[in-house]
């Protein structure tokens, strides 16, 4: 029973393109897969280390721009560049993490937000390297040997394989010793420290991991769309990622999967409100926090369990 959801979900992912052949939907699902990677990483930080980052768009952007610049401008091969970009982003996150994670709650929110603004402005102003506000085009697409990931369907299987891998690794992580230590840390940092958990190190480590995951998603995004511009990496995207975590429920990995897919596809469903995207996001964020502070996914699950119990 415990291991059932994963194979069921994987089968569903494999079968979905058989029903859904429209490229437009596939593209939306591909972006959703990348969001899943970012949101699961961010949830590890928010739900298990109790820290909120409003700067994950910056790490996403670092991954995308590093991949773009290293492959297109410097001519490095694509595949080794992706882990290289992750490593550089991880170092940046480490350097920022050490001082910021000492701060409490909302100070950290502001510090990461400030970091995001800095990265965004640098992307725009450093136009000689980044292409400035008009963006960076001509990023090479992904391929292995002679096999090119040149269709949305091929990308779909690649991205969802990555997303499911990240899901499995995260589930393993939270059920490990480190995961339990982090859970203790998120409930009560002082109590956790008193029981001998090195809270500082755990917080920095998880911050670095979640930044590296965002960077991975950024690299894949850049090689998929082959064009990136600073607009995709503004603080609005950081807010979207946090909203996805909160809608799915902090501390629930499956919830993150749910939140990321739901909110990635929502704008596609609500075509008519595209202009009011911002308005809708703000409203959802407020409403969920007010009425379901634990998230929609855990609330829905306990509701279902209650209904089943009632019947039997």
């Amino acid at each position: 029973m415990k291991h059932l959801p994963l194979p069921v979900f994987s089968l569903f992912v494999i079968a979905l393109p058989l029903i859904l052949s429209n490229n437009y939907y596939l593209m939306a699902l591909n972006i959703a897969a990348l969001n899943v990677v970012i949101v699961i990483g961010l949830n590890l930080l928010m739900g298990y280390a109790g820290q909120i980052s409003l700067g994950h768009a910056a790490f996403f952007g670092l991954g995308a721009y590093l991949s773009a610049i290293l492959t297109t401008t410097c001519g490095f091969p694509v595949w080794p560049t992706i882990p290289a970009a992750m490593a550089i982003t991880a170092v940046v996150a480490y350097l920022i993490g050490i001082p910021t994670l000492k701060l409490e709650g909302h100070y950290l929110v502001m510090a990461t937000l400030g970091f995001n603004v800095i990265v965004y402005i640098v992307m725009i102003q450093l136009s000689a390297v980044t292409g400035g506000p008009s963006g960076f085009a001509g990023i090479p697409r992904l391929q292995i040997g002679g096999f090119a990931f040149d269709s949305d369907l091929k990308i779909y299987y690649l991205f969802w394989a990555v997303a499911i891998l990240v899901l499995i690794l995260s589930l393993n992580l939270i059920h490990s010793r480190a995961g339990r230590a982090m859970a203790a840390l998120s409930h009560n940092e002082i109590a956790a420290r008193c029981t001998g958990i090195d809270t500082e190190t755990y917080k920095v480590k998880i911050f670095v991991i979640s930044a590296a995951l965002a960077s991975l998603a950024g690299s894949l995004y850049a090689h998929y769309i082959s064009f990136i511009s600073p607009g995709s990496f503004s603080i609005f995207f950081s807010l979207q990622a946090v909203t996805m975590v909160l809608v799915g429920g902090m501390g629930s990995v499956w919830g993150s999967l749910f939140g990321a897919i739901l909110l990635s596809l929502l704008p596609e469903v609500l075509h008519s409100v595209k202009e009011y995207n911002v308005l809708v996001y703000g409203f959802i964020l407020m409403a969920v926090l007010m009425f379901f502070p634990r998230g929609l996914f855990p609330a829905g699950r306990s509701f279902c369990i209650a209904m089943i119990r009632k019947k039997t």
């Binding site: 609005f236 807010l239 703000g282 409203f283 964020l285 407020m286």
Partner: peptide, 8 residues
């Protein structure tokens, strides 16, 4: 959330 809402 309120800030994004007001902005929108």
């Amino acid at each position: 959330g309120a800030s994004i809402f007001i902005k929108g």
